[in-house]
Design a binder for these strands. Structure first.
Lengths: 342, 342
DNA sequence: GTGAAAGCGCTAACAA
DNA sequence: TTGTTAGCGCTTTCAC
């Protein structure tokens, strides 16, 4: 394979020569070390900028065994929640002069592992990712190696790491409580995969609300799905076909809400008169439907920013213990449950 | 700033020692060079894998002046079109053992330039991006430096580079023609920023369709916007407030369609009876509205894949001239123009 | 406060 | 076919 070779950029050597100092001094000037004479520093920086010099990050990374790149791994780039998190992460990282290396795994453990190993080989300073139970052991290995990491959105038991999640249980609770408050007592839920912590927690919230209201759980109303559109579509159809269909459905993520809406439309079920609906997550399209969809909103941006900040802190000082942040959720009431006709 | 130092991973030296060969042989075995004895290669690879060796990409990149990372810069990560392209790019890149470094610029030239310069300092093998007129000179500089690149979605005049775009004019033409065919003759368009080629082309398609139909252009019906939600919202309101409002609106991207729908909902304008609508780009939510939105669909996935393939080719052989690919668009007819009641 | 020199892990001449 | 050796551009001891 013939590789193209780029015309070489300006190096530290040339800057040193032009400024009549050693490369060490140039390096120090750029690192902002205070052991270098302020005047000299100005001079060096001036020469460097006039030469259009930009330190080679690859060389720096090799020598110093650190880099300004962090790895980011998300399960789904088409999920508003994750792109929101990416934005939050990126804004913090950018401000700190870090770059991110982004991959998405489609929640496929093999792909994820692959990516993780590549990221490590790339010498990233740390990683932010959404853990998958199947790779638990690999995470531990990376952790033992001292790779700084922060997990977002999910947690897996037995893996002690800095984590930023969402108040999922609270969200599930609020959604269900809201429906109960409107008089619904046949409330179904379409859950995510139960090996994922946030899916379990959202379900827990639902259960707690029902229990507090003294409403017995109907197993059939708890439809297990996988956070994807198609299974939610199917689950909705099943619910509709039941002899005693629910009067309300709580769909536990954005993409599945699409599937449920699709099924409802297909069967011409009116919202909210024939079916009330609460979603989870709040992409822009939720409010332009008629009626707008009532949702549990979680601050993906802030979650991402928080995760990035945690990671940056981890890069600076050796870790002691691990921290867990939980972002609050919020119920955005629109017309899909019959309160407001919008 | 105290940087954390990772416990060093296995290096080529240790593999060489364990396999009782030189580092060069290990390197060659990994590079798949056929000058190495097949048996020896097997042996080396075996030892390496038993040691859990993974070549350090940073060192490789520094030494060989090439890398397996490519940079990707998009204007908006919340735009379905770009995330689709990212997926397409990533799948091709992954298969070729490349990683991508993703940034998004918010279409801010300064941020874009910043990113570009970081990517270069990171030693990426090439870049895929969506060019912005304001950075024209910088692109030329990068090109002169020999950095392989491919542009997607837009083109800027005077910048000769491999490009993959969409048949925007055709799309605009089809959309307008479709509306004309249904008897509409007061058709408005909400355009993107005219300094962006695809926005100009979509408008051209609209114009051509009107012209062919012998319908004179009404300047007020051509609302200039910026591809963002808010301006589309405003533009829609303006159109509605006009003494002779249009009977149909062609909104030229996904995000603006959201803005238009929002405005229409706010004013309680019925689709399609009081206003017909055609959008551009086809995220999942377009079809779950009632009625579903008729759109011009463009294959963002394939566009991305094509771009990635072009780039990979550029990495292999020195370039001669430049190539331009144009992906076909397709009209997806739903109920928003009054043909099908869905 | 500054410079000289070693070396990060790898690849690529050049030798053998 | 394989090994030896130099060096990619930078940071970082260790001298001065």
């Amino acid at each position: 394979m013939v590789m193209q070779r780029r015309s070489s950029a300006i190096t530290i050597k040339e800057v040193a020569a032009a400024a009549k100092v050693s490369t060490a001094t140039v390096s120090r000037a750029f690192a902002g070390m205070d052991c270098v004479n302020p005047q000299l520093r100005q001079h060096v920086l001036g020469v460097a900028s006039s030469l259009n010099y930009q330190p080679n990050r690859v060389a720096r990374s090799l020598r110093s065994r650190t880099s300004n790149t962090i790895g980011l791994l998300i399960p789904d780039i088409d999920n508003h929640f994750f792109t929101g998190a990416v934005r939050g992460i990126e804004s913090v990282l950018n401000a700190a002069d870090y770059t991110m290396l982004l991959g998405h795994s489609n929640d496929d453990p093999k792909r994820e592992r692959n990516y993780l190993s590549t990221l490590r080989a790339e010498g990233v300073a740390g990683i932010i990712f959404c853990p998958n139970k199947a790779n638990h052991n690999y995470y531990l290995e990376l952790q033992r190696d001292g790779l700084p990491m922060v997990c977002i959105a999910r947690e897996i038991s037995g893996f002690e790491v800095d984590t930023v999640t969402v108040a999922n249980k609270q969200g599930g609770y609020m959604a269900t409580k809201h429906l109960l408050g409107l008089g619904h007592n046949r409330i179904a839920i379409i859950t995510g995969p139960q090996e994922v912590s946030n899916a379990r927690e959202r379900l827990e919230g639902y259960r707690q609300a029902l229990q507090e209201a003294g409403i017995p759980e109907i197993p059939f109303y708890i439809q297990q799905a996988d956070y994807r559109q198609q299974q939610a579509h199917l689950a909705t159809l099943k619910l509709l076909d039941h002899p005693a269909p629910p009067t309300a459905i709580f769909v536990t993520n954005e993409v599945m809400t699409l599937g449920t809406l699709e099924a409802l439309k297909e069967r011409q079920v009116k919202i909210p008169s024939e079916m009330a609906l609460v979603g989870f997550d709040d992409p822009a399209w939720m409010k332009i439907l008629s009626p707008g969809i009532t949702v549990v909103k979680h601050p993906s941006n802030r979650l991402g920013a928080q995760a990035a900040e945690l990671l940056l802190q981890n890069l600076k000082k050796p870790k002691t213990g691990f921290r867990q942040f939980v972002m609050e959720t919020e119920l955005i009431i629109r017309g899909s449950c019959g309160v407001i006709s919008s």
